[in-house]
């Protein structure tokens, strides 16, 4: 196969991966790395390098929309970014040192985790009243407020367990740096369950952090020479286009049956990645 044709195929695969990622609310990275490695036979280090660049493209390209929504808690985001960027440095450095098999196996574990997250029923938890915020969270003024259009009222909330949240962010950053994914599937449940941040604010704040986290690992990958121009260019362009397509044309999946079908797809992909790792 010639190089231009190969780049065109990579682009088309990235469009599909980006669209599915946006559709499921998982981000393009979860699909692009398995697609590149399993279907197109791309080296996993180049696949991860290309994927992490596409995560930045998606994040920076859509920056304006979540700013306008005002749901993002910037202060909470800045605090957690200390954790995600530190984790990203550790993750990306470890990724360059471990054997390829370890990357495949870890990726399989994260895919299984993503399937479990997809099957978890989304339910709103009781928020923490701003006045009940304690210690560091109170001192830093981490709580926030946003206008909920569905409820027609302003939701004010306090933040619980900033230390645990910071630790979870470190893990999210490490996974992002290790595997070239955004890491939202770890951050959102952490903010929701541990820090008791309302799910809408948690999702918006997670998206806000993704670009900075991905840039940290992308810096390591670029300088090391794992960002291959002939792969990263079509992947970034394709995922960017696919994400736009996914968010514009398709309604975010809520139906239980469809989510279950995709959970099965994720498990199947995880098994393939695992087999590749063990081969």
């Amino acid at each position: 196969m010639s190089l231009p044709l190969f780049m065109l195929i990579v682009f088309l695969v990235a469009v599909v991966a980006g669209a599915f990622g946006a559709w499921l609310g998982l981000g393009g990275g979860v699909f692009i790395v398995p697609a590149l490695t399993l279907a197109l036979g791309v080296n996993v280090r180049y696949a991860i390098g290309a994927s992490i660049v596409s995560v930045i493209a998606t994040s920076s390209g859509s920056a304006a929309s979540y700013v306008r929504s005002r749901v993002t808690n910037m202060r909470l985001g800045m605090l957690l970014e200390v954790g995600t960027t530190l984790g990203a440095v550790v993750g990306s450095v470890v990724a360059t040192q471990v054997p390829v098999a370890a990357l495949f196996i870890t990726f399989a574990v994260v895919l299984l985790y993503a399937a479990a997250v997809m099957l978890r029923p989304v339910q709103e938890h009781a928020h923490l009243a701003p006045a009940d915020q304690r210690g560091v969270a109170r001192w830093l003024g981490l709580g926030g407020a946003y206008h909920d259009e569905a409820l027609g009222q302003t939701v004010e909330y306090g933040v619980a367990h900033p230390g645990l949240g910071l630790a979870a962010s470190g893990v999210a950053g490490a996974v992002s740096g290790l595997l070239g994914v955004g890491g939202g599937i770890i951050k959102v449940p952490a903010m929701d369950l541990l820090m008791r941040v309302p799910i809408k604010a948690a999702s918006a704040t997670s998206s806000f952090m993704i670009g900075v986290t991905a840039a940290t690992s992308a810096g390591v990958y670029f300088a090391r020479g794992d960002v291959h121009p002939a792969l990263a260019a079509p992947v970034a362009a394709g995922v960017l286009a696919g994400t736009r397509l996914g968010t514009r044309l398709l309604v975010r999946l809520r139906g239980g049956t469809t989510r279950r079908v995709f959970a099965v797809v994720l498990v199947f992909t995880a098994v393939q990645m695992l087999l590749r790792g063990l081969r």
């Binding site: 360059t96 900075v212 390591v220 090391r224």
Partner: peptide
């Protein structure tokens, strides 16, 4: 406190490029 926090993030971010070169 947020200036310190943000500067920390900026430092980590900038050191990433240098770190990748050393690997």
């Amino acid at each position: 406190s947020y200036v310190v926090m943000t500067l920390t993030v900026l430092t980590i971010l900038c050191s990433a490029l240098a770190l990748g070169r050393a690997l």
